[in-house]
Amino acid sequence: MSETKVNQFLKTPVKVVNIGLEGFAKELEQQGVTVVQVDWAPPAGGDPKLADLLSKLGT
């Protein structure tokens, strides 16, 4: 991104897509920033054994 484009970008209102911890989205919302919160969690709640099985079984 050229410096001109960066400057233009920073002059426009910020729109945020937040993935994961909802606290970041809430902080920005309190500052009047438009935020879309993506409800995401690691597969199988982060259990590596089950996540490995799921990757082999496919979904």
């Binding site: 969690a41 597969p43 199988a44 709640g45 089950l50 799921l54 079984l57 496919g58 979904t59």
Partner: peptide, 10 residues
């Protein structure tokens, strides 16, 4: 209900 989808998504 697919048990794979239940476990994957939580």
């Amino acid at each position: 209900i697919d048990i794979r989808l239940v476990v994957e998504t939580g």
